[in-house]
Every structure is written in structure tokens, then in C-alpha cells.
């Protein structure tokens, strides 16, 4: 079951940027790419838990601000020689609003 919730306007997230949202189970980073796709990932790099929302977004990847690990926004996988994976959550845009699948966020808690 999905449960899409509106977490804010697309324009509140800068293109090639991210914003953080708080959930009961930790922070989630919501990314917007240069071509207006949105992605949601845990806001913690698999390396040393760096805040991914503060990284540089390029293509559909983000570079962690602490040690430059590059993480795929689509799969949550660390790229290149680094190994690790971040949880990803379904996100989409509808009429200029960003929707996240709350059901999926909850499942993580369980």
C-alpha cells in the first residue's frame, strides 16, 4: 500500500540541490536534479553518516560533503570503488508539489 504525502513545493528545493525533512525515524534528504527529478534518501552517507542533503548534486548523483563519496540518487549505491548503500524512498512530483510515500517511510521503522 502506498500513502503519498505532500511535503512541500518543488520550487522550495533548489535545482541541483536538496532539503532535509525530519521523520520520527531520522532525517531524509529530498533531492531535486537539474532536470527536475526528485529523489528521497536517508540523510546519512554509508561511509561516516555525512549529511547528503548538503552535498553537490550532479546528474542523478550526489557527492557527500564530508569525504566526497558519490552516491546514486536512484539506487542509493555508492559509486566507483566505494561500497555501501543508502535507503531510498519513492518520491514524485505532482502539480509542482513533492510527494513522498509515507507508507514506505514507516516500513523502515518496522
Amino acid at each position: 500500500m502506498t500513502n503519498w504525502i505532500d511535503i512541500g513545493a518543488l520550487e522550495d528545493v533548489p535545482a541541483r540541490g536538496a532539503r532535509m525533512i525530519k521523520t520520527a525515524f531520522g532525517c531524509v534528504a529530498v533531492f531535486r536534479t537539474g532536470d527536475d527529478q526528485v529523489f528521497a534518501l536517508d540523510n546519512a552517507c554509508p561511509h561516516k553518516a555525512g549529511p547528503l542533503a548538503e552535498g553537490i548534486v550532479h546528474g542523478t548523483k550526489v557527492t557527500c560533503p564530508l569525504h566526497n563519496w558519490v552516491i546514486s540518487l536512484e539506487t542509493g549505491q555508492a559509486q566507483g570503488a566505494d561500497e555501501g548503500v543508502v535507503n531510498t524512498y519513492p518520491a514524485r512530483i505532482e502539480e509542482g508539489r513533492i510527494l513522498l510515500d509515507a507508507a514506505c517511510l514507516m516500513r523502515r521503522a518496522a
Binding site: I5, I7, G8, R19, K22, V30
Partner: peptide
């Protein structure tokens, strides 16, 4: 200033 805050706070809803 707005952009330094979380975009949303779901701690209540998710609970």
C-alpha cells in the same frame, strides 16, 4: 532563513 529549516517535519504524522 527558510531554507535552513527542514522542508517538512513528519515526526508527528509518522508516529
Amino acid at each position: 532563513a527558510e531554507t535552513y529549516q527542514p522542508l517538512a517535519n513528519l515526526t508527528l504524522e509518522a508516529a
